[in-house]
Amino acid sequence: MDWPQKRRTSFARREQNLALIGAVVTGAVLATGLLLLVLSRINPAYTTRLRGTAVDLVAPFWASIRKPFDALSGGLDRVGDYIGIVPRLRQLTADNIALRRAVQDRDAVAAENRALRRLVAVAAPRLDLVTIARFAGSSSGSYVRSAMIAAGTRNGVFSGQAVRADAGLVGRTTEAGDHAARILLLTDPTSRVPVIVVRTGQAALAVGAAGPLLAIRDRAGAEVPLKRGDRLVTSGAGGLFAPQIPVAEVVDVSDTPRARPFADPGALDFVAVYRVYLPVPEAPVALTAVPVPREARKK
């Protein structure tokens, strides 16, 4: 015996059903997107592993594409080196003499500084270089300003390490895959770096503003005016960045002062990654070890 025949559905009915299913799927997709948004808001770190993998996949692509261009520009540079060599050599010799003198002064000051530090027993954590890596990608995604470097957890690079170039601070690592990592640049709107104004010793925050310049916020002693050309260096507060890394130079001294970072990612090929200067202690500090006023103690 045959199965009872199903009610014949017309094409119109089929179309209707398809449209309904389409609408339900569309709604579900939008709802999923919004759910991801809410998750990103609540806990931005929940996709760390996924992002690490994505960085791993994209960075080698650019690293290999860059190779021939680097070779080409390296060759051109070598030719360019021979042009105007004599005046440049004289200039460099003169510079070298001046710098030798400066280095001698510096050595003397450093020795004196070491002696004084030993006298007052200052504990200075070591500054450990993790690796030196090449830039291998950027984010053009909206104003999240990040860069990728071709070094990852296999090279000892983990999330939350300081990245600097010889000119100054570049940023911090935010995601790490096996062979590549992502750097949050200073100009990203979520980047905040505790700095000191070298001339006045004021503490401040250098905040990314999604543009070429950094905003200087929360300056201690704001009644002392800044000057154009004031240098900002890291203060070491927070423990991520070591103190005295050059960060930026003040270029705008209005009510909302601004500074230009020393390290321009566009002009960089290689950056150095440093271990966290003062790591957060693994175990939370026992509250009993901290002196607490008697009034605040629990009875």
């Binding site: 997107g33 919004l34 991801l36 948004l37 996924l50 984010s139």
Partner: peptide, 13 residues
């Protein structure tokens, strides 16, 4: 989102 480093969900929505 994952490739360009924007918070996951922005482009996905």
């Amino acid at each position: 989102d994952v490739v360009t480093g924007t918070p996951l969900g922005v482009d996905a929505t």
